Computed example of a mutant assay.
Amino acid sequence: MSSALSLFVTGTDTEIGKTLVSCALLRGFAEAGLSAAAMKPIAAGAYFNVEDGLWHNEDADQLDAAAGALLPPEMRTPYLLKAPAAPHIVAAQEGRTLKLAPIVDCHREAMRRADVVVVEGVGGFRVPLDDQRDTADLALALGLPVVIVVGVRLGCINHALLTADAIAARGLHLAGWVANIVDPAMRFADENIETIRAWLQREHGVPLIGTVPHLAPPSAERAATHLDMPLLLRALRAHAG
């Protein structure tokens, strides 16, 4: 059985820096001396690259650039959908079914190829995959500890607490959360972060892994310097037993 570590990265919404933080985690694991691989099991939104003759997804490409242990595209992203829209809608239009078993199989193989595997979800925690299952079911099928990326902007407190409650309701372990400041003009950002920190710590025992400032342009390397990787690694290793 593999002794590799793994985690599932989810967000409070879409476009809140989930990929940036996932890439920062990959960089952070590398700095800790670990070979890190990335998975984006379901990606909606693809473009055709004439240079290599393959379909690509921008988020998946960023993950590959940050990963120390590269996975084959079909393992990194078992389901690459063309249109940038809700996965269950695009999958239905393309005549595809988003099955969990192939993703679990790919993840199992990825765990054999790296010390740690970062799995980035799609959208928020409860994005539908079909008329019966959502990304929460994917996280549950993988059985991974979850890291929440909170996009710090107006409404983030409610979104963060609801997301944490949804994760806990599925019986999944919350390994930590990251505050990512997406609105640099937000008033009382620090106070919002402190409120989330206090509530998540009290209600779920979830530590704040770090606060990523607004970065222009976005930089995984710079973002990684704002993360407490030893704290996260302790949480992941404790969960792994």
Results as ranks from 00 to 15, higher is better:
K99L: 14
P72H: 06
A65N: 03
A92E: 15
R76D: 00
H88G: 05
T97W: 08
A86P: 13
A91C: 07
A67W: 13
A69D: 07
A65Y: 02
H88N: 14
L81N: 08
A92C: 02
R76W: 01
P73L: 05
H88M: 07
P84C: 00
P73F: 03
A66M: 07
R96H: 01
L70R: 15
I89W: 04
T77K: 07
I89R: 09
H88T: 01
E94Y: 02
L71M: 07
Q93G: 03
R76P: 05
A91F: 05
L70C: 07
A69F: 10
A86W: 14
L100A: 00
A67V: 12
A69P: 12
A69Q: 11
R96A: 09
L98G: 12
R96T: 05
A69M: 04
A65R: 14
G68Y: 07
L63P: 09
K82N: 01
E74A: 15
P78E: 05
V90G: 11
K82A: 02
P87A: 03
A85F: 12
A83V: 09
L98M: 13
A92T: 04
A83D: 14
A91L: 04
A65Q: 13
A86E: 09
A85V: 04
L100I: 00
A85M: 12
P72N: 09
L70F: 03
A67P: 04
L63I: 06
K99Y: 01
G68H: 10
P78W: 12
K99I: 00
H88A: 02
L70D: 00
L63E: 08
